[in-house]
Write a protein that binds this DNA or RNA. Structure first.
Lengths: 205, 205
DNA sequence: TGACTTACTGTATATAAATACAGTACCCTC
DNA sequence: GAGGGTACTGTATTTATATACAGTAAGTCA
């Protein structure tokens, strides 16, 4: 089963919604919909939207203006990919209703600040689940709390390390014990923190 | 070149706009933008939007709620984050010229096909560097070559496993040897392949 | 016949959100 | 060292818009 059937008017309203969003980049207000259909009242629009929401074609945020999200197949995953919530047993195809959130790599997901990505070389952080070839997503900052995974510049090389406090010394440590820890101060060349690792991406070939 | 250059903050705001619209299907309100960036006032948002409008990146309808239209050619890397190539020695701040590529999670990066993401539960794939809480990005398909990491439906649970061939038997194997392999055929309940794992994302708190 | 759904009109109220004005701070550059 | 642009905070006001309640009318199902 997919989505339940729509009446002619509900379909017309859904079509109008889709074309409005495609054209303007934002959803119409209730009065704009009413005007487009020649309604003199808003209640008709509300009723139709309520039906569309009940049948799973749109989702609304109560009280918010123009907060209508179109659901359903014709929405490409242009930006971000849907996160599958529960997996219904024996479902032949994955129902759209299951998608609630979306996974993206942008400032909205990552929070404020400048970000960059860096491809990891070597296996010094393999015990932290960071493998050779992985991309770490880094929020640019020049300090970090102990315990954080940071990207530090050591001479000419950018390295991914834990920032750890040992007594009164703060140092960079690899997750792999085969690598020597590096004190943050009093080391030549002086390490410089480029940012904190906030995400990781790996592509499987 | 057509559109004039943007400041970092203006670019960040434009990226946020693009991803919000892509995710929600409608534009954000000024307060939502302010909240996303941690502003306590709306004037900053207004100023930035004004700059973006003056430079031709967006168009607004005065007085209307959420009436922000993104202009210009659809920028494919609107939501990506830059990948830092070489790290120049001793550079005080990271120069923009160093960024050559961008990391995105969209169909352009992932290739053709439908994709979804799934949050991994448990440590059955920890030896493959897939940890509890990681998101795997899955290309939807119902078969896969042996050697691939797949997401399979086992009864009501979606599990991440290697697809391996042993002799003439094809079976699902965990990377963690503590878990039993499951033959693809002749097992109850019958495993069903949902797709192949093509990527992995992890967020660090 | 009556209950139920769809498809609206009409009026009133509440509020989310845009606008406006005043001010601070930090660059630039001329 | 004055002037302009960027990047905000803080408070107040207005309004576009969502919501609520009370109806009417036609079709359909049982």
């Amino acid at each position: 089963m997919g989505l339940s059937a729509l009446t002619d008017r509900q379909q017309a309203l859904l079509d109008h919604l889709a074309s409005f969003v495609a054209k303007q980049g934002y959803a119409p207000s209730l009065q704009e919909i009413a005007h487009a259909f020649g309604f003199s009242s808003l209640q008709g629009v509300k009723d139709h939207l309520k039906a569309l929401e009940r049948k799973g074609y749109v989702r609304r945020r109560p009280g918010q203006r123009r907060a209508i999200t179109l659901m359903g197949p014709p929405r490409p995953f242009a930006n971000g990919i849907p996160i599958l919530g529960r997996v219904p047993a024996g479902t032949p195809q994955l129902a759209l209703e299951q998608y609630d959130e979306r996974l993206t790599l942008d400032t909205a997901t990552l929070g404020p600040g400048r970000h960059f990505a860096l491809q990891v070389k070597g296996d010094s952080m393999i015990h932290a689940g960071i493998h050779d070839g992985d991309y770490v997503i880094v929020r640019q900052q020049d300090t970090a709390e102990p315990g954080a995974i940071v990207v530090a510049l050591l001479g000419e090389d950018a390295t991914v390390k834990y920032l750890r406090r040992r007594g009164r010394q703060v140092r960079l440590e690899a997750a792999n014990p085969a690598y020597r820890p590096i004190p943050l101060h009093g080391h030549v060349p002086a390490p410089k923190i480029l940012g904190r690792v906030v995400g990781l991406y790996r592509a499987f070939r």
